[in-house]
Design a protein around this nucleic acid. Structure first.
Lengths: 130, 130
DNA sequence: TTTTAAACTTACGTTAACGTAAGTTAAATC
DNA sequence: GATTTAACTTACGTTAACGTAAGTTTAAAA
């Protein structure tokens, strides 16, 4: 089961796959966002690495900095967390969830604004201005 | 009616009010995001200017660049649009709405992920790892 | 009128997030 | 064995979005 989780990926593969440049991926590694293994000098990404990169892409789309994303990814790897750290991790998760919910709200407001503008524009198209 | 819409604001006022630095506000003006009037050399912001700045703040939070925000603001000022331009404006609005809806989805996914992590962390806190 | 203070104008500096060239290594193909 | 080719490593360059310092103007207060 979970057969495909044993698949591995290279930088150019993931670049095409995830819509990133190779440079970006290597840059993310240099910043500690992913830590692929090596086969000689070639980077070998696991399925988990790929998932992490996808999280990077998603997070960037909604405006998180690489630093913020790294902080998140570090705790995303729950297995590396022990009991003592779990409580702290929980706080961080909740903080991030709140941050995301805030963005949710901002987007909501903007979508509503846009709805109004859309109406107005439609009206202008039909009857002209004012 | 709409009494407060006749109020005016200065840079330091808006900075405190909107959680921006004075530098940032002046920078936004230099980039054409707002165009306050002047009283001597002092900038005078209208209520509309303030609204525009609030849109800037909101948009930045969800990851839009100043360039993108400017494009949006330019069309937000619907009154400057004529019939011919309205159709084009409509397309831009719809594009932006789609972009926002996309971000909505990304946030949704991340919130779900976080829910899972939260559960896992709670479990770890109770019973330890694995 | 001198002082003070508030908003302002250069203008150089900084950080993040890569882009881009130029040369290197290592494996595969001819 | 020579040559491509594919991933790689410096390392300098670039753009966005301001920060920061230093000096300027303008009006109000002393």
């Amino acid at each position: 089961m979970n057969f495909n989780k044993e698949k591995f990926f290279t930088v150019p593969e993931l670049a095409k796959d995830l819509g990133l440049t190779e440079r970006a991926i290597r840059f993310y590694e240099s910043k500690g966002l992913v830590s692929p293994k090596r086969a000689g000098n070639t980077r070998i990404f696991s399925y988990g690495d790929r998932t992490r990169l996808k999280i990077v892409v998603r997070s960037k789309k909604v405006g998180f900095s690489l630093k913020e994303i790294k902080d998140f990814l570090d705790l995303y790897d729950v297995n590396s967390n022990h009991k003592q750290q779990a409580k702290n991790g929980l706080k961080i998760v909740e903080k991030r969830m709140n941050s995301l919910k805030d963005q949710y709200k901002e987007i909501d407001i903007m979508l509503n604004d846009l709805k109004g503008i859309k109406k107005e524009l439609s009206r202008v198209m039909k009857y002209g201005r004012k």
